[in-house]
Amino acid sequence: MTSTIEAVAALVGDAKRIVVFTGAGISAESGIPTFRDPLTGIWARHDPEKLETASAFREDAALVWGWYLWRRVQVAQAAPNAAHQAIAQLARTREVTVVTQNIDDLHERAGSADVIHLHGSLAQPKCFACHRTPAALFFEEPIASEGLRIEPPRCPRCNGKLRPGVVWFGEDLPAVAWKRSVLAARDCDVLLSIGTSGVVFPAAEIPIMALHAGAYVVHINPAQVAQPSSRELCLIGRATEHVPALVSLMMLTDMLPS
């Protein structure tokens, strides 16, 4: 009897176009906290959802800028895990589009190219006033591990305050990233949804679009996040266990004589 992971490996092996759609769960396995994890240091008394808004930046830009610098420290201290590396390995043998809700650079550091960031990226700030992205990076400040309040640098063009280049609550997703993600979802044969609960919209529409377009959707998550059907499968467990095993099994199948 074929196991679920063997069935998924066969689907991925036969697919011409694959979308890998990732959420906070895959980064959590590298030690980057999710919103559900308790905060530490000066941030323990703050609600992340209240820091991640334009109104919070207007009221206290130093607090919000310091919060994101602290998060950059966490990302810098983290390393791509086995799931990130397996995804990059998969892309060396198949046509793979990586779409992530995460604002870290762990996919890129693992070797994935041209990653679509639906929620923006910590790697590059932009101006709060003119919305331009400066050519130079402005994340050179030394940051204590517990975090600090720091005034943001100024835009070299208009002197407005620089803000993190991420999507805050109440903001639209970047139009180009959203369009590319939708096109990839509607044109793929298999979508692997890894480490995402599917409750953050509109990003959560991406697997739904793929399913409605006729693709197989495979969820890899510690908890059951979808009702399995003939075109929707679930691998319940850690991404660092399932994704490398899936890719290894698929590679092994490729090596077998037909």
Rank of each mutant, 00 (worst) to 15 (best):
S3I: 06
S3C: 07
I5L: 12
E6R: 06
E6S: 10
E6N: 05
E6A: 08
A10I: 04
V12P: 00
V12F: 06
V12G: 02
D14H: 02
A15C: 05
I18D: 07
T22I: 11
G23T: 06
S27I: 09
S30E: 00
T34K: 02
T34G: 04
F35K: 04
F35L: 03
D37R: 03
L39D: 01
T40N: 06
I42Y: 08
A44N: 02
H46K: 01
D47V: 12
E49L: 10
K50M: 04
L51F: 02
T53V: 07
A54Q: 07
A54R: 13
A54C: 03
F57M: 08
F57V: 05
E59K: 14
E59H: 14
E59Q: 15
A61H: 11
A62W: 00
W65Y: 05
W70Y: 15
R71C: 13
R71P: 12
A76P: 05
A76I: 07
Q77P: 04
A78Y: 15
A79L: 13
A79W: 00
A79G: 07
P80S: 11
P80G: 11
P80R: 10
H84I: 06
A86T: 09
A86F: 14
I87P: 11
A88S: 14
E95R: 13
T97Y: 03
V98T: 02
V98H: 01
V99E: 08
I103A: 05
L106D: 04
A110S: 12
I116G: 06
H117P: 01
G120C: 08
L122F: 10
A123E: 10
Q124D: 02
A129E: 08
A129C: 04
A129P: 00
H131M: 14
H131Y: 09
L137A: 08
E141P: 02
P142T: 09
P142F: 12
P142Q: 13
I143E: 13
S145H: 14
E146R: 00
G147D: 14
L148W: 10
R149N: 04
P153A: 05
P156A: 10
R157K: 10
C158F: 08
G160S: 10
P164H: 09
G165M: 13
G165I: 08
V167Y: 04
W168I: 09
G170Y: 14
G170T: 11
D172W: 07
A175N: 06
V176I: 03
W178G: 05
R180G: 10
S181W: 05
V182N: 08
L183V: 15
L183E: 15
R186K: 15
L192R: 00
G195L: 09
S197W: 03
F201Y: 15
E205C: 03
I206C: 00
P207L: 00
I208N: 02
M209I: 06
A210P: 00
H212R: 15
A215W: 03
Y216V: 01
Y216S: 01
I220L: 05
N221G: 06
N221E: 05
P222K: 11
Q224L: 15
V225F: 04
V225K: 07
Q227K: 10
P228R: 09
E232N: 13
C234T: 12
C234F: 00
C234N: 14
I236T: 12
R238K: 14
R238C: 06
A239P: 11
A239M: 06
V243G: 02
P244D: 00
L246W: 12
L246I: 11
L249Y: 04
L249D: 09
L249W: 04
T253A: 15
D254W: 13
D254F: 12
M255K: 09
